[in-house]
Design a protein around this nucleic acid. Structure first.
Lengths: 234, 234
DNA sequence: GTTCTATTGTAACATATTGAGACAATAATA
DNA sequence: TATTATTGTCTCAATATGTTACAATAGAAC
């Protein structure tokens, strides 16, 4: 199956995913680099005619990262005319050797239903799609220029993530099963983009009664070893 | 122009609006009753081929309420297969004397980009669309059964409104330009569905430094007259 | 006018939450 | 054994919020 099949997908509707990961103290997202053009874009795709919208997003996530069962949240649908630039998709396709009719469905106007995902960086197996050379991690606070309105999509995703983090306890989705308090704090600091007071953070997290304390983690460093924590199962 | 024109609209994409108003201490939304069927639905519409998605929602709002310049926020896009029930739209259209080809675009699968609006109840001039008998206010906490997934759309709208109210100061959009502290409190109570302590609410609102105090409102009641307030202009 | 009632605006105090610093515990190293 | 960096927890101060109290009034009843 190729992306060029005319049957099977809903026209005018796409999805894009802002996939967040956390590594070495930095918040990162996945970007794809299209063949020959050097253009960067969010991973995305189209919706099958008999497929739930959410299922399409999950399928796309699975195809790029190999991961199932991911924290995935729809946050906004982008549908301005300004994002309709058929020459962009045309250039990408031509760089891959596809020369389409100007009224081909893939060159039509699309609205993009956008999702963000929080994943455990360590578990990802990255796989580019058939139009791109690579898929790789990019630091959220030094992103390059992306195609179309994808920079705006990332900005909105980050804004939504920040707002949600205050209400839901989703930060742990970016970490391995067991983590230290310091690692959890670094996740919060990376998302909010500012330092957090250590003692206040620790007291609040423990007070929420959502963490389970496990054995200590001996790293070989010459100081007191921190406890490992996991989120309590519901 | 009729809804049946085949040109001009993007297929598969609709919008629905949860339009909130506040009157007599109750939070209400606008619903349309389709001709002959008695079926109730959210006001909505389709997106023109060269129209911004947001503009389409604003246009729909203007058509039903006569209002421009409304607080309008996109909150979710519903796109599950479960909401694809062509017989519903077919019945509505037939009740209006339209008998369509089974592959007419209006009987196709749609995803619905959903918006909620906050409007000043007093200023609305209601106008049904061409398929419905009436458009009217219904209390949010005693809603009847709506078509398709529209009850779920309303539930999500209300949830988003509650979450946003804690972060943004949007409650005033449901009131006239000038209002008493008690009226503002009633808006908050209606949205959250619970009583709020008067003195705490007053202290917090005044402390936010967003209200301007005006003259007193003499209602003729035999007690101290409350001040009128408005939101400070930015 | 005087008294009464309902409601408003604000003060006062109690309680809870958060900010900020201090300090003992401890895992390796010198 | 002393030293260093980091962790876990405690304490006290500063804010914020919950709760009660009370004076100020706009009319109505008399």
């Amino acid at each position: 199956m190729t992306v060029l099949e005319t049957q099977g997908f809903l026209p005018h509707i796409a999805f894009d995913s802002v996939i967040f990961g956390f590594s070495k103290g930095k918040l990162k997202i996945l970007l794809m680099e299209y063949h020959d053009t050097g253009w960067l874009a969010l991973p995305g795709g189209f919706v099958r005619k008999e497929e739930d919208l959410d299922e399409a997003a999950k399928r796309g996530l699975k195809e790029r990262t190999g991961l199932d069962n991911i924290y995935l949240e729809q946050f906004y649908t982008f549908g301005n005319m300004a994002r309709f630039k058929p020459e962009v998709m045309q250039t990408i396709l031509e760089a891959n050797g596809f020369f389409l009719d100007p009224d081909h469905w893939m060159l039509d106007r699309f609205i993009s239903v956008s999702y963000f995902a929080l994943i455990n960086f360590e578990k990802v197996i990255l796989t580019p799609d058939e139009l791109s050379d690579s898929i790789a991690w990019y630091e959220i606070d030094s992103l390059p220029k992306l195609i179309l309105d994808h920079n705006a999509i990332v900005a909105k995703a980050l804004q939504t993530l920040r707002e949600n983090l205050e209400r839901k306890l989703i930060g742990g989705n970016l970490l391995p099963e067991r983590f230290t308090m310091n690692e959890l704090q670094q996740v919060y600091e990376a998302i909010f983009g500012e330092k957090i007071r250590r003692t206040t953070f620790q007291r609040k997290m423990l007070g929420l009664d959502i963490l389970e304390r496990h054995e200590k983690l001996y790293t070989g460093k010459s100081h007191k070893a921190p406890y490992l924590y996991s989120f309590k199962k519901v």
